[in-house]
Amino acid sequence: MVTVPSSPPPRTQRGRAKAARRAELLTAAARLMAERGFAAVRLEDIGAEAGISGPAVYRHFSSKTDVLDTLLLEISERLFTGGNEVVERGLAPTTTLVELIGFHIEVLVSKPDVIVVQDRDLPSLTPAANHRVRLLQRRYVERWIDVVLECAAEGELPEMGRDEARVRVHAMFGLLNSSPRLPPFPSSRLRPVLTAMALAALGARADE
């Protein structure tokens, strides 16, 4: 199993500098891969974009595939862990659903390049990373489905079975995850628009 281990923040100045360079490389990689596609980007391009010399890049990543694995594993872990944290707050089902939508939108707004890369370049992951990412995605979806069904049981959403809930959740993700490709729009106004669209995809009435 491939995963991104959680570790405490580096305490030394050298450790913090190394972590900052790694983050810069990942940000540069996401930007370039979103613009050009994974196949058209070299590891050297990523280093140049981040202002890091070619040999120094290899201190952080062994290949551009290693970079892609890290990018998509980290975003998948972030979504799954963050979604769980929302659900485990024990709020009312409708409140939980709205909080989940808000959390997902915040990730989209803060990491648009990574979302584009995930949507387009998932097949380029190594087999182990692909398996782990898809497992995390399935678990994330199932948490959403549980909440949607709880809302439906309380009459806050239309009555539906698990299969329909799964279709609605996937359709909602399709809407939300397309947001990085939308025309320019202020993020403060984009959030309520996307929230309304997400609720509509799940069957909420317009007045809710």
Results as ranks from 00 to 15, higher is better:
48 A>C: 02
122 L>F: 04
161 G>R: 01
61 F>N: 06
135 L>G: 15
90 G>W: 01
130 N>R: 15
88 E>W: 07
156 E>D: 12
49 E>L: 06
173 F>Y: 03
171 A>T: 11
127 P>I: 07
113 D>F: 09
148 V>M: 02
178 S>K: 05
159 E>C: 11
100 L>K: 01
128 A>R: 13
107 V>G: 03
132 R>G: 06
164 E>S: 06
168 R>G: 01
88 E>P: 09
88 E>H: 14
45 D>T: 01
103 F>K: 02
95 T>K: 11
165 A>H: 02
50 A>H: 03
161 G>F: 03
76 S>D: 08
133 V>Q: 06
175 L>H: 04
176 L>Y: 00
165 A>S: 01
171 A>Y: 08
120 R>N: 11
52 I>W: 01
67 V>Q: 08
148 V>Y: 00
79 L>V: 14
170 H>F: 12
136 L>W: 05
103 F>L: 01
114 V>R: 09
49 E>M: 04
170 H>S: 12
43 L>T: 07
170 H>D: 11
113 D>G: 02
152 A>M: 04
153 A>C: 06
87 V>H: 10
59 R>S: 13
136 L>P: 10
73 L>S: 07
169 V>M: 01
150 E>W: 03
71 L>T: 05
99 E>C: 09
140 Y>K: 12
50 A>Y: 00
80 F>S: 14
120 R>Y: 08
116 V>L: 10
68 L>C: 07
168 R>S: 02
70 T>A: 13
76 S>F: 08
175 L>Q: 06
100 L>Y: 03
74 E>Y: 12
62 S>M: 12
123 P>A: 03
146 D>Y: 09
73 L>H: 09
116 V>I: 11
88 E>L: 13
147 V>M: 01
160 M>G: 02
99 E>P: 07
119 D>K: 14
113 D>Y: 11
172 M>Q: 02
61 F>C: 04
156 E>G: 12
109 V>K: 08
78 R>N: 13
45 D>F: 00
163 D>Y: 11
58 Y>R: 05
130 N>Y: 15
85 E>C: 09
96 T>F: 03
94 T>K: 14
121 D>C: 04
107 V>C: 09
58 Y>W: 08
154 E>Y: 10
176 L>S: 00
141 V>G: 07
136 L>I: 07
130 N>F: 15
96 T>K: 05
147 V>L: 01
183 P>L: 01
94 T>S: 15
151 C>I: 03
153 A>H: 10
111 K>S: 14
91 L>E: 15
57 V>A: 00
51 G>E: 02
71 L>G: 05
149 L>T: 06
116 V>P: 12
56 A>S: 12
96 T>I: 04
43 L>D: 07
177 N>W: 10
138 R>M: 14
118 Q>H: 14
155 G>L: 09
148 V>W: 02
154 E>T: 10
133 V>H: 09
147 V>T: 08
105 I>P: 00
104 H>A: 14
150 E>T: 09
91 L>A: 15
97 L>A: 00
124 S>C: 12
125 L>Y: 04
122 L>D: 07
162 R>C: 06
70 T>Y: 09
